[in-house]
């Protein structure tokens, strides 16, 4: 699927930018603690037919779970500002060392007048993509997909949350998950009546 480091997903293209570099900042989980960590950053660019041009990074922190972070909104429509302001994905580490990706979705919240991260069903995600998200992710190399209880044995209040497990540093799967649950959701006005 990836040709010349580019993947097409519905109305979006993902371009993987070469190289890794140090990134200093605060992980989501430590954002209230003093001091910064220096992680390792890989980036990809998300562009769309409606002028979105967004740089997103996968940051591996030395002392915190990895994260997908929108870094630089280089172009787009007003509504794309939602992607610059929110939509970070904080990954989990499973018992066997793989990465767990929570699949919440940016959805318009009418009472707040903005996009917020909300739970979504597999059907809703399929609708955003235009075909089976599960099939696409398995084809890309995802290890498992389903509820957190089913794929990771969680029994807490997040047990029913839709998620997937990927191999560590599988940036292609991570980028596609980001695009479907964040970029496409905003582009397709998910939740707007």
């Amino acid at each position: 699927m990836a040709e010349n480091n580019v993947i097409s997903i519905s109305k979006c293209e993902i371009e993987f930018l070469e190289g890794k570099k140090p990134y200093s900042g605060k992980p989501m989980s430590d954002r209230k603690l003093p001091g910064e960590q220096t992680g390792e950053l890989q980036t990809f660019r998300v562009t769309s037919s409606d002028e979105l041009n967004l740089i997103v990074g996968l940051i591996e922190w030395p002392d915190a779970p990895p994260e997908l972070v929108p870094l630089d909104l280089l172009g787009g429509l007003d509504k794309h500002n939602e992607l610059a302001r929110r939509g970070r994905i904080s990954l989990g580490i499973t018992a066997d060392g793989n990465w767990l990706v929570p699949l919440s979705v940016l959805k318009f919240n009418p009472s707040m007048g903005k996009f917020t991260l909300q739970r979504a069903s597999e059907d809703e995600i399929d609708e955003l993509l235009g075909h089976s998200f599960r099939e696409l992710m398995i084809e890309l190399g995802a290890i498992d997909i389903g509820s957190r209880q089913k794929i990771d044995g969680e029994t807490n209040n997040r047990a029913n949350q839709f998620a997937m497990i990927v191999k560590p540093q599988d940036i292609e799967s991570l980028a596609v998950a980001y695009v479907v649950t964040r970029a496409l959701a905003v582009i397709k006005d998910f939740g707007v009546e």
């Binding site: 570099k21 950053l41 980036t43 041009n53």
Partner: peptide
């Protein structure tokens, strides 16, 4: 970019 201490043009 302060975090990467690097300079970008169009990303």
């Amino acid at each position: 970019n302060r975090q990467t201490r690097d300079l970008y043009e169009d990303g």
